[in-house]
């Protein structure tokens, strides 16, 4: 593999890993505080899947980079500006509706992405995706069912989830902004066509929101972008402070 491709693949694997690490972290904050015991279990389980997927992607990123960095080095010893996760997944949990809306918007994307990545020409990446897509199928079913329950439940739940979708919508535009990393890897058959994922995403999201009696938010609004280049919202730095504190305080220690 030439240097450009190697670098692009490293970046791409960071994106895949960081999305899941950061989302898993957010979900894990619910642990012990869920609205009902069954949801405590479900959110923790999804968090666990996300961290497991992140571990696999980051491990592969380290080996592609070939500088001896482990998944833990990448998770614990990078600064916020070096994280490449979507802004969507770093948004705070808010209420349960906010968490579900964030999860659903990501799950639809992640499911279709991983479904395609199973056929990547990069075998190890394809292998991780094939395993992860099975988990994501369940995640998507879970978040979609809750979108329906909350959207078409009570007036209060309807309002809460509608406003969650309205608030989060500005973070959905950048999901599908392809840059040269995407383009180069797509040419090599390693990554996927983000355009085709976007059309499936739009269709699935509007279909679910309509069924849930919710309005698809207005596309004519400020849309954030830049996280794949390390530009984030203010929330990520605080999250990483917490996530990394112990590991960074004792860099020599084995745990």
């Amino acid at each position: 593999m030439d240097d450009d491709s190697r670098h692009a693949l490293f970046e791409y694997l960071l994106r895949l890993g960081d999305d899941r690490l950061v989302l898993g972290h957010r979900l894990s904050e619910w642990c012990g505080h869920g609205p009902i015991l069954e949801e405590d279990i479900a959110l923790t389980n999804i968090a666990l899947d996300c961290i497991g997927q992140a571990n696999n992607f980051l491990q592969l990123a380290g080996s592609v980079e070939n500088k001896g960095r482990t998944a833990d080095d990448l998770a614990y010893f990078r600064e916020a500006i070096e994280f490449k996760n979507l802004m969507l997944v770093e948004q705070p949990n808010g209420d349960f509706a906010y968490t579900i809306a964030r999860q659903f918007l990501f799950d639809v994307f992640s499911f279709h992405l991983l479904e395609e990545l199973q056929h990547s020409s990069h075998q190890e990446l394809a292998g991780i995706a094939a395993k992860a897509v099975k988990e994501d199928r369940y995640h998507l079913r879970h978040s979609r069912e809750w979108v329906l329950r909350l959207g078409d439940g009570t007036d209060e739940s309807h309002q809460r989830i509608q406003s969650a979708f309205n608030d989060l919508w500005m973070y959905t535009g950048e999901i599908f902004q392809a840059d040269k990393v995407d383009d180069l890897l797509f040419e090599k058959g390693i990554s996927v066509d983000l355009k085709s994922i976007e059309s499936k995403w739009s269709e699935n999201v509007s279909e679910a929101l309509t069924e849930a009696t919710l309005a698809v938010p207005d596309a004519e609004q400020y849309m954030a972008s830049g996280s794949r280049q390390g530009i984030h919202t203010e929330y990520l730095g605080h999250m990483l402070t917490e996530m990394q504190i112990l590991t960074r305080s004792f860099p020599e220690a084995k745990w």
């Binding site: 894990s28 642990c31 405590d40 571990n55 980051l58 833990d72 996530m243 745990w255």
Partner: peptide, 29 residues
């Protein structure tokens, strides 16, 4: 779940984080 959940977000490695998440999830189960 609460005293152990207190350390999930600060677990010092991904392996430890997964182990603790799984443990607390077992307790909910």
């Amino acid at each position: 779940m609460l005293p152990e959940g207190n350390w999930i977000t600060r677990a010092p490695s991904l392996r430890r984080k997964m182990g603790l998440l799984a443990k607390v999830q077992d307790e909910a189960g």
